[in-house]
Amino acid sequence: MATRILLIEDDQLVREAYEEALRGEGFDVEIAADGQEGLNKARLGGYSIILLDMMLPKIDGLGILRGLRQEPPQVKNGPVLLLTNLSHDPVINQAMDLGASAALIKSDIDPGLLIESIKAYVAAGGTDGAAGGA
């Protein structure tokens, strides 16, 4: 069963780059371009990994994490990995407190590293997306 990934990222070019790289690796990728769309899709549940940008229109990353805590989906999601360009910002700690598993600085990594990280988390948590997470 293909790994289902939810990519929540508002910058079009960054989103396209990651989407194509991840699809090229055989992952099943769904996208959201703003926070509201992101929260809606996340609530449907069943994603192995959620890649979450922190600065988003409509609802920000923290808002999404809170929303998922308040109303967890019926079918659980896997880990939430923050994909952000904010470094050493208190917002990151807050996000970790709200259930995010890790934070990756986009400009510091390349798609190869992102793919490796995703594979590592999926392997650690099981492949059917039923691992604990958001």
């Binding site: 990651y18 360009n85 798609p111």
Partner: peptide, 14 residues
């Protein structure tokens, strides 16, 4: 500045 750099770096990597 990091946002466009991320896009450039990602596409070049691919």
């Amino acid at each position: 500045l990091r946002t466009p750099m991320t896009a450039i770096k990602s596409f070049l990597w691919m």
